[in-house]
Amino acid sequence: MHIMEGFLPVDHAVGWFVVSAPFVVAGAVKVRKILGERPEARLNLAAAGAFAFVLSALKMPSVTGSCSHPTGTGLGAVVFGPSVMALLGTIILLFQALLLAHGGLTTLGANVFSMAIVGPWVSYAVWRGMRSVGIAIAVAVFFAAALGDLATYATTAVQLALAYPDAQSGFWGAALKFGGIYAVTQVPLSIAEGLLTVVVMNALSGRAGKVDEVAVLAGEVRR
């Protein structure tokens, strides 16, 4: 999902910065609020960031014969709401842009939008939607993480199609082409991410379990 340094036209690069910036600011405000009001959630917030940090470093093979990496943003989005992941995801993307030459500073706005905004919001919407109709926590977490991951890559494909529409088939042709590269590769990986997110959620909630592990992780219910 990383658009490489300098590979978005200037107007697109600036545009995505403008779109993403308010989400990141809102995320920073939310993180401050959580740290201040729910000190018992600090470790879990850091763990959610660490989970995204691990998963976004692991490039895995896929059935398309290419490699890609999961995003790991679903866990934090489900537990703390999507806005905190805008901040945590931006930190991860900055790390990769500066130290790994992976992604970039000029494309940071676009990459933040796909990985740290769209992915977490899709995860959160899926989670809330499935829980509201009474689907089990583990199942809802799985779908939230998997679909958020997939949405991130679909967003990258759309961003590239907007910047580089096909000469003949226009936006949709380009969206299909980039979708083939990014989104199709991502299907098995997002399933794996969904499974791992359920495992880590269980492990993190430790003895809490049962009642509502997610609320406990978010520090909303005192142990």
Binding site: G65, S66, Y182, Q186
Partner: peptide, 21 residues
Amino acid sequence: GIGGEFKGSDDLGTKAIAAAR
């Protein structure tokens, strides 16, 4: 039956841009 060089999708995306433009 699953062939390929297992290159990174990010690099393939960059290559596709280079091919289109």
